[in-house]
Each structure stands twice: as C-alpha cells, then as structure tokens.
Write a protein that binds this DNA or RNA. Structure first.
Lengths: 245, 245
DNA sequence: TACGGTTGTCTATATCAATAGACATTTTCG
DNA sequence: CGAAAATGTCTATTGATATAGACAACCGTA
C-alpha cells in the first residue's frame, strides 16, 4: 500500500526535495523497518526515475535532519522513525500525553508579555476586545527534539505572573495549579495544516517546505469559563493527533 | 499578528512558490478582506524582499489555482477565500457537515473492489487478516471544487454491494441505511499532515508541494462493531477540522 | 483628456537544479 | 586476498529560477 512510485516532474519544488519527502514518509511509515536502512542510492534512483546525484541530494538533506546516516561501503542507516501521538480529548494535556512516548520532555519559554486582547483572542477567551491578557511564547521538546512551538493567551486579571511560573514548572497544568486552578478541560480544538515559515524552520529545526499541523485550542475551567487560548504549530512529520469519541 | 514578513532564502523550494504559499495563507485568513484584492506587485515585492518578477510568478500560480485574477491597470482581485470546516465528533458525517457551507456537494466513486484485508485494515475493522472486505475509492467535491479523496473499507459479508449503492446515493449514510444499518458513530480519528503526491495533485486539482490533512477514521455501529475504516486526504488550504469536547 | 498607478512583456545575466559519466574509497563476504 | 557492492568526489552540460531594467498597455479619476 505504501509502495514508492516514480515522482512526476513538478515545477517550483526541487526534485531532490520531493524525493526527500517521500523517503521520510516511507521511513516514518515503517517501510524499511526490516533492514533498518534505506535502499542503495542506485536502487532509489531507479525507483524514482531520477539520477543518482538527485537521490544523493535528498539523502544529504535527510542526513542533515538527523533522520538517516550514510556510511561509505555499507549503506544509509535509519536513525529515527517514531511519530509522537497526541490524544485530543476533554483531558488533553501536552506533557502528560507524551509521558509514555518520550524519555524526556522540556518546555522552553521564549518570552511572555502582557497586552490587550485583539479581536481573535477576545472572541476565544470570551472577553471584551482590549482586555488585558498575558501572552506566552513557547517551544516544546521531546527527547531533545523540538516538537511544537506555540503562543498562548490567558486572562491577565486571573493569571497574573503565569509566565514566570511556567518558566520554572515547564507545565501549564502546574502553573494553573499554582494560581489556584486545580483542573481544566479542553473545550474546542481547530486543526489545520500549512507550510512552515521561517520562524518555524528556526524554532523547530525544520527544512524549507516542511509541513505543519496547526491547532487553535481553548481550555476552560470546570464552570466553562475560558482560561487559555493557544495556537500551536507542530512539525507534521513528528506527530499525529488521535481523537477518540 | 498575521503580518507578512520577508521570506528567507531557502533551498529546494522555489522562491515564487514560497511566496505563493504565503499569499494564499494571507488571503485565506482574511488579511485582504477590506479591499478584496492583493496589494500591488511592487508592494508585495518590497514586503517579501524579492524582485517584482518573482512576485508575478507567485501570483500567476495563484491565478492558475483560481484564487486570484489579475486585471491590467486595476490590480489583482481575490476570487476565493473560504475554508470549509469539518466538525469531528461521534456524529461526524461527511456530507451533512458541509450542508451549510456549500451550495452543492458531490461524491464521485472512482472505483470499488472486493479484496482480502491486509494487516492495517484488519486491525482497524477488528477482523482476521485476509477477511473479505470491500474497498471504495472516492473523491468529494463542494461547489465544483474537490475537497478530499478517500479510500474506505467495509466488511464484505455485511455490506455486499455497497459500491453500487454509494455510486447512486453519493452518501455513506444512505448506503448504510439501504443495507439495514440505520445509524453509526465515529469511534476513532487519527490526523496527520503531509505533502501531496501525484495522485493527490491530479484528483484534488492541487499544485506541487501542496499540503494535505490526512485522516484515518473508524466508524462503528451502535453496538461498537466496526463498519468502516477510511483514509481521507484533504486539501489543507480548503479545510479545517474542529473538535468540540 | 491627461496623469498616476497598475499589470503585461521583453532582454540580459548570474546562480541553482538535474543529468551524465568516470573513478576513488570503504565495507562486506566468499 | 580479491571481488562485489555501496557511498564519496569530480567535471561538464542543460534548463529552471531569480534579479535587473526598461517600456508598453490599461484602468480609474481628477
């Protein structure tokens, strides 16, 4: 079902990049699990109907990403292939959801600021436009590999100082708890996909043209009052979402 | 927040394509709604820090997609900007979910076949590997515009002839009803994202490098017995998913 | 009607992407 | 060891991509 077929000539995206995407996808879906390595360059060139040099460019890009490692005389070994799963439900929590899948997770606070809610944030948090809100910019890692970058907004009146608490605890759940909110639930999640921009490429260690999964999510307290609105940008080749109904 | 910034030089993806992606995204998020048109080529060139000819290539690609239309002497008008919303819940139904968003929806059956369940299909439908299943290949349109292509599998013993019924009714819900299943629910949905392959580009009228949202979904009857497993590939710039908890 | 602002077209040049072929270097295995 | 198989490196050629500049054609409006 996941067989690799010939690429068709396409303008605008370099052939080597298209091929790199195909191979990355094949690795991630376990096509080469038996051998633990990618087929020889000459074989790939034949499969894709391109020159061996073009395949080499693709493999060089994947090596740069740390997905494969070429060894002269032996072949090209697969270094990484896992895809993290994020269950999306009423009890969605970022770090908890990863507990069984990664040895080590980190949340880095890039910055935080207090500002006035714009129309979008006001709508999601159900406050007046212009109401003071706190914005947090974060990047989350799993096993030293960046997984998502996000921007979150909180009502400033209720969650004063959440930035510094988050920096120390590296957890929204813990930060909420420290501010007197012991429990919260995921109310709404919107999911889209897009290309990575230059900020994504930098923060998530992606390569140009990479694909992102983007969520816009709103959490409420147990009374249904919005406590957090966040936009998260996930590296699509490292994650999948699961919704259980 | 959605301001367009300079593009950074990236290898592997042509500049004009990166810029086309940015402009498409800006249009879809309503940045130019006030004027109904894209800024002049010279302004865009300045914003992105590229030559005007490069912007023209990008706009030509968007015109090809039917998203904008250039008029000499006036400017470049926006033709389309909507993004269809698909609510994902226990009651997820493809066509019903679109009723308020599109004037006209169609489901085209590309083909159907009876085959033996492979490991993946068997796991999702909870049957023995090798069990006969019916496979349907479909493309769905909204207002003459292709939105998703999909492959669905059904247990053959229970849903014999579902292919022909689907071709006539253009609805899974109706086909199930005709075969004695009056109601069903969405049990699980997995969401990933990836680049479009050549089949996607053809069936969904996409351009190379386009982004897809991919769902793997399983429906059950009211007793929890799997009745359908499907993989759907959505044009990411035309849809978003919403999960309400 | 004349003008400013906008898209359309043309020429020229430099760099990147892709193909092609040849050969070196390294590992594995009989 | 020696051959086969794999990756690494080099040269050369062609077409696509991007920049630069100049000017034509067209639209709206003062």
């Amino acid at each position: 079902m996941a067989g690799i077929k010939q690429v068709q000539r396409q303008t605008g995206v370099a052939l080597w990049r298209q091929i790199a995407d195909r191979i990355r996808e094949a690795i991630s879906s376990g096509v080469y699990d038996q051998t633990g390595m990618v087929p020889p360059e000459t074989v790939l060139a034949l499969q894709f109907g391109v020159n061996r040099h073009t395949v080499r460019s693709a493999l060089a890009a994947l090596a740069q990403e740390g997905i494969v490692r070429a060894v002269q005389g032996r072949g090209t070994l697969i270094e990484r292939k896992e895809r993290l799963n994020f269950p999306i439900s009423r009890r969605t929590r970022f770090t908890d959801g990863l507990r069984d899948q990664a040895r080590e997770t980190h949340a880095l606070l890039l910055g935080h600021a207090e500002e006035a809610a714009d129309a979008e944030v006001a709508r999601w948090l159900r406050v007046e436009q212009g109401t003071p809100v706190i914005r947090l910019e974060t990047v989350r890692d799993a096993d030293k590999r960046p997984v998502a970058r996000g921007t979150s907004w909180f009502p400033a009146a209720r969650f004063a100082g959440i930035g510094e608490i988050y920096r120390k605890t590296e957890s929204i759940t813990k930060a909420f708890a420290a501010l007197g909110l012991s429990d919260y639930v995921r109310a709404t999640t919107e999911i889209t996909a897009a290309h990575a921009d230059s900020g994504d490429i930098a923060d998530l260690e992606l390569t140009p043209g990479a694909v992102l999964l983007i969520t816009k999510a709103m959490n409420t307290d147990l009374e249904g009052v919005p406590v957090q609105y966040s936009i998260s940008r996930f590296a699509a080749d490292r994650v999948q979402f699961t919704i259980e109904n």
